[in-house]
């Protein structure tokens, strides 16, 4: 890990991989205003204070923390399911099995409130984004792009390959916290029949 400047009110921790970034994030989150990236952690504060805080913290201690598993039921009927099967050389059923068999981890958030970039899934599912983004992706759509999977928390434009959909609200202001998927959480997709998700 190396420290990189990010202006006069924050420092960026540039880590070797996502796991190291998540360990630093978990160690610093109780003490500072931190944001997790794919393999970076932004710590807000006076840079001298942040450097002191980082110097006194031990990321390894966070590795054994317990994380809850969130189960997301999905109806695998997305418009790009066939395309994903073609790109990966799998059958549609194998795509569904690959997506549900391995638990995913919330690597970082962004794009929209409640949107989580999930990593750690089956590497056979790495597919490029669509050539042209859709102007409207419905709420609850489950997609794939690069090493990531994600669920659209609300209707928005989007370029991910859509494999299915869920009825579970990813973002609900009446809930505390409103986001279902928080950095570091484990996520397991479960295949359900149409209408049951």
């Amino acid at each position: 890990m190396r420290l990189r400047p990010s202006g006069d009110r924050a420092v960026l921790l540039d880590c070797d991989d996502a796991a190291e970034a998540q360990a630093w994030f978990a160690a610093l989150e109780p003490e500072a205003d931190v944001t997790l990236g794919a393999r970076t952690v932004l710590v807000r504060g006076a840079p001298a204070d942040v450097r002191r805080l980082v110097g006194a913290a031990t990321p390894g201690e966070a590795a054994g923390r317990s994380t809850s598993e969130v189960v997301v039921p999905v109806t695998y009927d997305g418009p790009d399911l066939g395309e994903v099967a073609r790109l990966t050389g799998l059958t549609v059923d194998e795509v569904v099995d690959a997506h549900t068999a391995t638990p995913w981890t919330v690597a970082f958030t962004g794009f929209a409130p409640g949107f989580a970039y999930l990593t750690g899934g089956d590497p056979r599912l790495h597919v490029p984004r669509r050539d042209s983004p859709r102007p409207r992706v419905p709420v609850g759509a489950v997609g794939l792009a690069g090493p990531y999977s994600g669920v659209y928390p609300r209707e928005s434009p989007g370029g991910w390959q859509l494999v299915g959909s869920t009825d579970v609200p990813l973002w609900d202001l009446e809930r505390d916290p409103p986001a279902l998927l928080l950095p570091g959480a484990l996520v397991r997709f479960e295949s359900v029949l149409r209408g049951a998700a």
Partner: peptide, 30 residues
Amino acid sequence: LESEPVVRGSVQVTTAGLPVVLGPDHPVTG
């Protein structure tokens, strides 16, 4: 670049090579 956190004032450089100084409603990561 793998997405990383940005702040108000971050100067991103787009694929066209032009700078964008992020304002208060910037995305959390970019």
